[in-house]
Design a binder for these strands. Structure first.
Length: 556
DNA sequence: TTTAGGG
DNA sequence: CCCTAAA
């Protein structure tokens, strides 16, 4: 039933045309609404490609739905050509193919269940890559959890458990044979929020995207290791190496690239060098920060020389005003349009929504912003508008998944691409000098933190610009300074006394605490860096080869 | 420009 | 997070 190869199960419902105007319904009613089908929201590019919708788009649509529910059906039905439905077949199929890998999971699962506090100290097994260290760290932490916690994390991903089961994210992740529940758990660990989406494929894709920060996820196999999709088999290969080139994923036939390493790599992936060597390029495509210094912005009054960041924002606001957007339902905030609006793209015209694809750097390539999800605020609106039942009732996800209101933060990888903080995060603080400056705050997501840690491990603490450029290219709102600051905080946190969760006032953690394993890792890296940086200039190797000696032993 | 630190 | 001094 897949009209379009590889398009199944990506996201949610409905279709729009390139401009995101709603395609007028009718035509071939292909399905009864009653069918357990999940429709996916995509945008049809000018050239006919389908691009997964962003949350913004979804929200827009949702807005419509609110007004006229029946319309939704029509719209959904109108998806003739691109109608995509999901059945779970894919997962089943790959299960067998992956049997080999599933062992990994099993092993970990077993390890998790071992009730051995002593393991915490026994963790170091063999000198290995930092990846392994990470794994071990996680394992150790996992093992050190109280039985209760462990059971809790396993039993449900419900909002009741405070911490997601991060163990699901460690090491190599094979999503293929996971149950819905496990997928939910993994999802939660990945994004920091729960989801009620029951579609496996969607979940897997979403998780994969979250973990790899890559939009180009094959639809057939989901084994992720070290932030990259491990491709198996022959036709499974995705061209995720070429995300940036955006010949485009999902819809168009997936053409494979040198996938060489696949299995063999996995087996002897002790060498993190190798792995890191073939990281997803798409992450590393530098997204040139637009030097949007338009006339408009010059008119903005200011007392102090604005930082680049401010400049971008300001110009952005201007743009919004010009484009007279009446787009998102949650337009309460005057500036919730992603930054791409402000990009120096030629395709920025008053009526075109430039933020659905983003203009990436030099080549001006268009990179689809995959179903990156919302900013915190809008979500609420959606829920209010559409009603949660809509989502929960059927086994289909329609455009959104439910989340816990606040406490789920915006742990969204999705927020990553160019949007900026939602309005509620921007407060203006009066300056002594009479001016006002905007202070925006964007909570660090777990994914970001992990990324940061990984970046530090690879490039060394202190090389912030490097890390920014290489590992945070897609997070335009994180500057190298931000990375540095965050690292400083992580460091502080990692050396600080143990969290002691229970005692804490429940109100206290509005944001998810940083999982112990990560802190542990931070500490290791700190140590490594401390002893490695003085003389050795090879900070690139920090965290890899250097791990041989037991730096960890000192802490455990 | 990038880092390091103070606030 | 922001800001600034240094490099």
């Amino acid at each position: 039933m897949e009209t379009v190869a590889g398009a199944e199960g990506v996201d949610e419902a409905m279709f729009e045309d390139g401009r995101v105007e709603k395609t007028t319904p009718s035509n071939s009613p292909t399905k009864q609404i009653s069918d357990p089908v999940v429709y996916k929201l995509v945008r049809v590019e000018g050239d006919g490609r389908l691009v997964p919708a962003t949350d913004d788009e979804i929200m827009e649509v949702v807005d419509l739905l609110k007004d006229d529910n029946s319309e939704m059906h029509i719209v959904a039905e109108s998806g003739q050509a691109v109608g995509i439905s999901i059945d779970d077949s894919s997962s089943g199929k790959s299960l067998s193919e992956l049997s080999g890998f599933s062992k990994f999971e099993d092993v970990y699962a077993d390890a998790e269940n071992l009730e051995a506090p002593t393991q915490e100290t026994a963790a170091p097994v063999a000198p290995s890559s930092d990846i392994d260290q990470m794994k071990q760290s996680v394992d150790a932490a996992e093992c050190s959890k109280s039985p209760d916690q462990m059971r809790e994390s396993e039993l449900s991903c419900a909002a009741t458990s405070l911490l997601p089961d991060f163990s699901k994210l460690k090491g190599e992740i094979c999503l293929d044979h996971l149950s819905i529940r496990e997928l939910h758990e993994t999802f939660r660990a990945t994004f920091g929020r729960v989801t009620t989406v029951k579609d496996k494929t969607w979940l897997k894709r979403r998780i994969a995207m979250g973990l790899t920060n890559c939009c180009d996820i094959p639809s057939t196999s989901f084994v992720i290791k070290d932030n990259q999709i491990l491709k198996l088999g022959e036709e499974e290969n995705s061209n995720n190496v070429n995300c940036a080139v955006a010949t485009d994923q999902d819809v168009v036939a997936i053409d494979d690239q040198q996938t060489d390493s696949d299995i063999s790599q996995k087996k002897q992936s002790e060498d993190c060098q190798i792995i890191s060597g073939k990281r997803l390029n798409c992450e590393y495509i530098e997204d040139s920060l637009p030097e949007v210094l338009n006339q408009e912005q010059k008119t903005v009054k200011r007392l102090r020389k604005p930082t680049k960041r401010y400049i971008e924002e300001l110009s952005e606001v201007e743009h919004h005003e010009h484009t007279g957007r009446s787009i998102t339902p949650a337009k309460s905030c005057g500036r919730d349009c992603p930054k791409s609006c402000a990009r120096p793209a030629k395709n920025v015209s008053p009526d075109s929504r430039t933020y659905f694809t983003r203009l990436d750097s030099v080549a001006g390539l268009r990179v689809p912003c995959v179903s990156r999800v919302r900013r915190s605020r809008p979500r609420k609106d959606i829920m209010a508008l559409v009603g949660i039942e809509l989502v929960e009732k059927d086994n289909q996800c329609l455009a959104i998944d439910k989340v816990e209101p606040e406490q789920n933060l915006e742990a969204k990888h999705g927020d990553s691409l160019d949007d900026d903080a939602s309005e509620d995060n921007i407060v203006t603080v009066p300056t002594a000098k009479g001016g006002i400056r905007r202070k925006h705050h964007r909570a660090w997501t777990l994914a970001e933190v992990m990324r940061l840690v990984e970046g530090v491990s690879r490039y060394g603490a202190g090389r912030w610009s490097e890390i920014k450029r290489l590992a945070f290219a897609s997070y335009s709102y994180r500057t190298s300074v931000d990375l540095k600051d965050k690292w400083r905080n992580l460091l502080k946190a990692s050396f600080a006394p143990a969290p002691t969760d229970k005692v804490m006032n429940p109100r206290k953690h509005v944001s998810m605490p940083i999982p112990a394993p990560i802190l542990l890792r931070v500490r290791e890296l700190a140590e490594l860096h401390a002893q490695a940086s003085p003389n050795l200039s090879t900070s690139k190797l920090v965290g890899c080869g250097g791990s041989v000696n037991g730096t960890r032993s000192g802490y455990l």
